[in-house]
Design a protein around this nucleic acid. Structure first.
Lengths: 199, 199
DNA sequence: CGGCCTTGTTGGCAAGCCGTCAACAAGCCG
DNA sequence: CGGCTTGTTGACGGCTTGCCAACAAGGCCG
């Protein structure tokens, strides 16, 4: 699609960059980091391979940009807006999380599990930031703001649980949404009531 | 170490294979999949690069063998041997899990988080098997045997929580072992008592 | 004890990928 | 229409991987 090797055309840098990036997002999302070469991205964009390096530098830099896009969820920063009692807020944040993940399942859930080259410091940093954002949203919804590092760590661990549970639901299809909701809300409630106060 | 380019010596296939594999485990464990080339492994073993392919085929095949080694924990299959009440068994299995992980932290914990090329079907399969083994051990210790698929899925999700929590303890160093223990045991108890019965 | 023969081992070949850079040309401007 | 800015190209060097024919280490047999 759109590989048409027409006569070369000049685009404004922003437009060309955006075009290449969209192709890269699609390809990396489908085949992972090692599964796609810079030549593939260039061919998909109908462009010389050197242009990819010109706009994004290293292939790893391009990949960083891609997972940054995939992990940037529109409403991830907007915390839940509950004012009721604790169980209600736990229920609300769980519903919100499952909505967001299911909507962007193919990209967010795949990228958060390091869909490519984990172990690389830069990649891990980007993923850690996304986990931090999700953990902060959860923590802000069910606990008082400005939490100590230990609580933030526990919130990150809870996000790990949420991601693993969501995978069983969306990728493996062995859990229903109701089961996932029950598991996550019950676990979060336990943590808030029994574990967090000790830290 | 042991790079000594002495006169070439013939080893029995099993010995040579074992030697190369041990070098590969060390290197891949240190620098990840993309960070080490077949030439590095060959040089580390004092051997021609072609021999690595001769014994292990593809570089990915060698990597699969490596993570299979790193994820094979001696006592992972031996389930806990508790006969007391539920809280005691939860506490015992938690202690056992933390002991195992802390002892093999550098390898097991790193490999279970897909320390290289996640997204690859074969690699994911090996990791999934390791998670299944851990989940089965946990489930067998705190629940009746022969659990339905949904419960196994929940146990895998719990392993995801355990891995994420252990990382906050062993890699980030922001949680103490006592905090990790409290979080994991409380969460598991909640799941067993409130979530599992509904499935 | 010397030659042979199995087979563990080597080195090089071809293909592919990546980062870089000088050269080219598209399209605006005078 | 000619020049000039700059988006774009194609190729070069270096590196990696899988493969394979050739080599030789070391046991075996006469």
């Amino acid at each position: 699609m759109s590989v048409q090797a027409g006569p070369r055309r000049r685009l404004e840098p922003d437009a060309r960059r955006e075009q290449i990036l969209s192709v890269a997002v699609r390809l990396f999302g489908e085949r992972g980091y090692a599964g796609v070469s810079a030549t593939d991205v260039a061919r998909g964009a109908g462009v010389a391979r050197g242009l990819v390096n010109h706009y994004f530098g290293t292939k790893k830099d391009l990949y960083l940009e891609v997972i940054r896009v995939m992990l940037t969820v529109p409403g991830m920063a907007v915390a839940g807006l509950p004012g009721d009692d604790l169980p209600s807020r736990v229920d609300a944040i769980t519903t919100w999380f499952l909505d967001v993940v299911s909507r962007h399942s193919r990209s967010w859930l795949a990228a958060i599990t390091a869909g490519g080259m984990s172990g690389d410091p830069d990649v891990d940093r980007v993923i850690a930031q996304a986990i931090d954002a999700a953990a902060e949203a959860v923590l802000a919804a069910v606990w008082r703001p400005a939490s100590p590092p230990a609580l933030q760590a526990m919130a990150r661990a809870y996000v790990g649980l949420a991601v693993a549970t969501a995978r069983e639901w969306l990728e493996r299809g062995v859990l229903t949404r109701a089961q996932v909701h029950k598991l996550l809300s019950a676990s979060l409630l336990t943590m808030v009531e029994q574990v967090f106060p000790d830290a």
